[in-house]
Amino acid sequence: MSEPKSAPAEALLSLENISLSFGGLKAVSDVSFDIRKGEIRAIIGPNGAGKTSMLNCINGFYHPQQGRITFKGRTRKSMRPHEAARGGIARTFQNVALFKGMTTLDNIMTGRALRMKRGVLWQLLRAGPALREEIEHRRFCEEIIDFLEIEHIRKTPVGKLPYGLQKRVELGRALAMEPDLLLLDEPMAGMNLEEKQDMSRFILDVNRRDGTTIALIEHDMGVVMDISDRVVVLEYGRKIADGVPADVQGNQKVIDAYLGVPR
């Protein structure tokens, strides 16, 4: 369990009364919570609780019918995905969403796309400023590759990689964006114990070293309780608990949701 922060930091992102439905199906109803600057915030809940829909609302892929999203002090109802990316929100996906025909290095380099400014004509020549820029960003990406220990697959097309490594590459692509808020959707699904330990280490390092705020969805309760600062619990699209791991663990509603109670 990580150390409690000395003073509650300001909220980087807050969600107020978010409701989202597809046709008649309510995916999320009236959920509010916030994510503080610098913390690791876990979102947990049984399958179909609306966790991924929540992340999709945050980075603008879904537009909630009701509610307000405040990010970095700016309040809005919804935004376009690339606006969210520009604002500093990066994410990984439950079913890996890498660019399968491209190499590991190229995948991570796409995370730098927003920061590369040289015009088409310089890129055409691939000389002078464009080449310098390319090399500068290559250096940045190589640091991420070193950090994630994926040097050996640098030039392998990611479609050919095993699942665990793909998850790592995807994290690398998100890190290349140098995000303020990193959304991780089940980063450890389908991994064995060692892979989970590695991934937890990467997540904690990113949080401690770069001060990146992280929101993560995860089913492995051991990992969640170990690495997160605060946990929010969803069930059937509603929030049923919110607090530090110890509180949530003891919450009767949460225990019922996971173990099931006769109703």
Binding site: N59, F61, P81, H82, A84, A85, R86, A90, R91, F93, A97, L98, F99, K100, G101, M102, D106, M109, T110, G111, R112, A113, L114, M116, R118, V120, Q123, L124, L125, R126, A130, E134, R173, A174, M177
Partner: peptide, 30 residues
């Protein structure tokens, strides 16, 4: 020229759109 564009920033954006357009949009490619 085409080779240079294809292996630069613009080319990577093209390939990202080709391989998975939704994910490309979510990492900020328009």
């Amino acid at each position: 020229g085409a080779k240079n564009l294809a292996r630069g920033n613009l080319g990577r954006q093209w390939m990202a759109i080709r391989d998975m357009d939704i994910a490309a949009e979510l990492i900020g490619i328009r």
